[in-house]
Design a protein around this nucleic acid. Structure first.
Lengths: 333, 333
DNA sequence: GTGAAAGCGCTAACAG
DNA sequence: CTGTTAGCGCTTTCAC
């Protein structure tokens, strides 16, 4: 037979109200003796309180939704880890949702999370999302966006990184190191970080009196395959270059590999810089010079912000622009 | 004001029972007209059913727990993805739990998941766990273990890989390719997969008339740092060798890097084989020869097995031993 | 200090 | 074909 608060109450010879109070630590007004008796019975019977039932009355589930494109993409596990660590710390659980940048899946999860009555959602929206949808606008649960915001959606907070400055720093560094003709191989331009990094690239060029040439910018996806492919295209088109600023590390890895296949030496012939500093950046050869994003912190901060909102703590700031760091390794001379 | 099933019932001029039936598709006995009327009111009012309330009565939450050591370890995202995909497909959500191989955290999550009334748990237990704990034994929720089982715990299923054969194949291949003195750098010996791979290593040696020498086996952790460190130790101890079978890819990567630092050529001087085939195995140079584990499938299968158990489908088999594949690349000659 | 009772939003008989 | 009703397990006033 299932052991509920009733069982415990009966066995301990008290009311269920009393049991509830001791279970939830609201036992200021309960005598030592009663409390211990209840606790003893709970232990003896392995009573596990049913939080679903509490949720019914408190209207809080102590669970968060985490909506990201793909946990198997090396950019996201660290974010997820940050979120989960903070959540656990505060007594929350997190439901993982992979959208594959598919708007329909996103909407499906939003629906599910609402039905499951999560207290809040941490959201890295699809790079394909152009604008808010009805289901997003109708959402009445707190949302924190990470990495990219959603045009037109008012959220409870935003945690991101200064992509433009990150890119600027990277390209500036390449210029300083003597690279003259620097290409930019980007992710999908629909993604906001891509556009911001492009801006930084442009600005670095211009502030060093190098004309921006849109023919030196190649738009693709955030994958190493795009890196390979793009290098092939560039080389077969006889485009001249001695440096490449890549939209992320995955692209950079593909680039470096394919450059080697074409017998081009990194960093001597060609300098390559990535973005993200995923942990395998140090595993390749040469080790990748890249712009580090504090991914773990982003997740952690987002969870913190969300939970503070939920618990109505004072929030001094709800838009965090975290700093990137240029990590100089060996893919640049 | 909150919109509940009552609101809808009133607005549509029907009983809440009727609303419930159409919401849950149990509407065989409901006239087209009534159904449409209800549906219309639901849409107009953005009614979102409260699944917490349903859970109270159905005793099903349609959520699964996924307990793993660390989502930031590249071995796990694919598993998580497999689990989540299957779960989503079947209308389940998954709660992510990172234990850091810490038994206490594990126990904490088990408690939380029980309180949250998850329908089932998918579990990759800590490599440090020696035996079942009371809280595990008291668990009355279905559990499927992945990658490693838990000594002494009866579960609803197990999905793993044949580590011994995987290791055997790898070492056999190295022998066939002419490597004579093959070391084995392992993960923590407390971990079952480590022990099984060691067995495979031993068996491959012996069936090729090479004496097993325990001084050629080095136990550490599943990290690239251990790879570096171990190579340094081996070289400073003047141990002779021309091949290394590593406990996983991370170790192999550390090994390869440090071998290069010592001016040893892979694969010509030294052959290296890893285990797992995490996707960065192709990003390093030389590309890593390794034993592929079907991680995504493991997660997927585990979720399938769990959900079938929950839904009382016929289960023909509940212990899946998936096959590894030797992936030959360039870290062996 | 402790308990009785109302009710959270929903499902599942069962009756009509 | 549709509605009535009795809970699910818990929290939270409010009395005592």
């Amino acid at each position: 037979m299932k052991i509920t608060i009733k069982t415990i109450a009966k066995l301990a010879g008290v009311s269920i109200a009393t049991v509830s109070k001791v279970v939830n630590g609201k036992d200021q007004n309960i005598t030592e003796g009663t409390r211990n008796r209840v606790l003893k019975v709970i232990k003896e019977n392995n009573y596990v309180p049913n939080r679903i039932a509490s949720s019914m009355v408190t209207k809080k589930t102590k669970t968060l939704g985490l909506v990201i494109p793909d946990i198997a993409n090396p950019f996201f596990p660290e974010i997820a880890r940050g979120v989960e660590d903070k959540a656990k710390d505060k007594g929350y659980n997190v439901i993982l949702c992979n959208t594959d940048n598919d708007i329909e899946k996103e909407e499906g999860y939003i629906e599910m999370l609402q039905e499951k009555m999560v207290d809040g959602i941490i959201f890295t929206s699809s790079s394909r999302r152009k604008n808010v949808s009805q289901s997003l606008l109708k959402l009445h649960i707190p949302v924190i966006t990470v990495d990219r915001n959603i045009e037109g959606l008012k959220t409870q907070g935003l945690v991101r990184v200064d992509n433009e400055i990150g890119a600027y720093d990277a390209v500036k560094y390449m210029i300083d190191r003597g690279y003259k003709k620097i290409l930019h191989i980007t992710g999908p331009i629909a993604s906001r970080p891509t556009r911001e990094r492009l801006k930084g690239y442009k600005r670095a060029l211009e502030s060093n009196n190098i004309a921006y040439d849109e023919k030196l910018v190649f738009e693709g996806s955030f994958s190493s395959d795009w890196g390979y492919e793009c290098i092939d295209k560039i080389i077969s088109n006889d485009i001249e270059f001695d440096g490449i600023f890549c939209g992320n590390d995955l692209i950079a890895m593909g680039v470096i590999k394919e450059l080697k296949n074409h017998k081009l030496k990194v960093p001597d012939d060609i300098g390559v810089v990535g973005f993200d500093d995923i942990y395998l950046a140090v595993m390749i050869e040469p080790e990748l010079t890249t712009v580090r994003q504090p991914t773990y912190e982003m997740g952690y901060k987002a969870a913190e912000l969300l939970i503070n909102t939920l618990e109505e703590k004072e929030i001094d700031q709800n838009d965090y622009m975290l700093k990137t760091t240029l990590i100089i390794r060996n893919s640049t001379k």
